[in-house]
Design a protein around this nucleic acid. Structure first.
Lengths: 273, 273
DNA sequence: CCTAGTTATTCTCAGAATGAGTTTCTCTCT
DNA sequence: AGAGAGAAACTCATTCTGAGAATAACTAGG
């Protein structure tokens, strides 16, 4: 139920005047954000240690209550993405370029002992985010590599998350992996200008598998709208020399046709490595 | 914020006892369902005419408030999918086989004039659903073909929906179209046993474009885990005779490797026919 | 029974895309 | 200048596609 273009109809005005919102049973809406970035070749996720009850002391995704109305804590969040960014901005500096996408909403009864809570999960991708603001409200925050959370390839999490955040993270990882195949999402992990090699490293980091450099290069350039040549060259050709790479920017296409599939091997993915 | 396995920690018990859920500003959570089925070769969506304010008299997606707690209206919905099915079961008979999937949550301020409303949208796919229960509470309900709502191919909606339901429907259609490429979702529109031709007709109906029958056949059988041969044959070969088609059932695979892409034409989709 | 019409399934074949290597270009460093 | 490194281009056998033709299995009507 929504209202993009409120229309008055006879009777609707009086109906609204009589309406008591408090007649409803209390329910709260929260946002939780899976913020992903790639640091030195490995995907990392932002986690915070909970300072408040419940589940105090546990590591969790950054999150918080959506401000439904203006109140003592501050003005209402105009929309859900605003709430996600607000919550996240308390933990880390937000970049100018970012990709924010809704993952899903979780609302099983009993998820939170206080009251019925509906939690909207978001995934944020951004290039090279800095270290989190820590120490604030004694809440610790840190970038944690996927592999430490059981998303490297093996399936064992060495660190358990609070609430059902482990599940949310798993969904986010799978979403990111599969969206890399069919969309130009990978560029969200990179600065405005990047090399094909940098783009390949994003794919390798997220998919956790090596890619054939030459074929990747060919495929990227053959996919219309994925990248555009800037005409510039990268500053240096790496540590030990080497040809300077051409710089590209993200093309207009959001969807890749044809897609960039993970090797057919991964379909038969039983024991990778 | 969620709680899959509630853990008591010192201090947490007293904290919960002191907690007043009503201290929060009121917000409501609703579910809206995009129920899709294919009737005589065309995709249809279930719509209802709103009997209550706001937007009384407009056509809208079936939806309603999630029951957060047990109350006079009935017991609480254990989870969001339960709420979606409950809301839908008031409009139509639910089949035993169905696919229910969350689309997303919409929560912009001002969507509903009564209060802050967060609406979780679901998409339901099912084979040959019957005519809706109509007349109940004077609420009208009907299966409406996509094309009448501007999703045939042209971009003009001949019927405007209430709230932002037009947007939700657009998202659902796009989701269904693209999931047909990468997943075995198409079988959700079909009964347990079906022919390759029936499967192709689902693709054609949803994508709105004809497919080469022979190549489709080859591709389906070459995609591991998509369909399994039942060994049976279809009853009759159609009206004017013809070879009896082999019957298949859905295979175990959820994801298709390799995917079944819409023709490369559709990438350059400017004026499809 | 025989034949035309219909639908399902299989074949053929040329063009495009893919996986694995190899080669050529440009840099840096010594 | 020469070696080493990294980017980009080229080669080639294999596989995948799009289009169309051929074959199989039925129905309905003489």
């Amino acid at each position: 139920m929504t209202d993009e273009e409120p229309r008055q109809e006879e009777g609707e005005g009086r109906f609204l005047a009589d309406y008591d919102p408090h007649a409803f049973a209390p329910a709260a809406v929260t946002v939780d954000v899976v913020a992903l970035t790639i640091r030195s070749g490995d995907p990392h996720v932002l986690l915070t240690r909970r300072a408040a009850h419940p589940q105090r002391g546990w590591w969790a995704l950054p999150g918080g209550f959506v401000r439904a109305q203006d109140g003592p804590d501050g003005p209402a969040d105009p929309d859900l993405p605003d709430a996600a960014l607000r919550v996240l901005s308390e933990k880390t500096l937000l970049p100018t370029e970012l990709h924010l996408e809704q993952l899903g909403t979780y609302g099983a009864r009993g998820r939170d002992p206080r009251m019925r809570v509906f939690s909207v999960a978001y995934m944020l991708l951004a290039p090279g985010l800095p270290d989190p603001r820590t120490g604030r409200d004694t809440e610790e925050a840190a970038w944690v590599p996927w592999r430490e959370l059981g998303h490297g390839d093996g399936a064992h999490a060495s660190r358990e998350l609070a609430f059902d955040h482990g599940r949310v993270l798993t969904d986010a990882v799978e979403r990111a992996r599969s969206k890399l195949e069919y969309t130009a999402l990978a560029t969200a992990f990179l600065p405005p200008a990047f090399t094909i090699t940098a783009l390949r490293e994003v794919y390798q980091a997220v998919w956790g598998q090596p890619l054939h450099a030459a074929n990747f290069h060919r495929k990227i350039l053959a996919t219309p709208g994925f990248v555009e040549d800037t005409g510039e060259l990268a500053e240096r050709g790496g540590a030990g020399g080497g040809r300077r790479a051409r710089l590209y920017r993200a093309g207009g296409a959001a969807l890749l046709h044809p897609p960039l599939l993970r090797s057919t091997q991964s379909a038969t993915r039983g024991t990778p490595r």
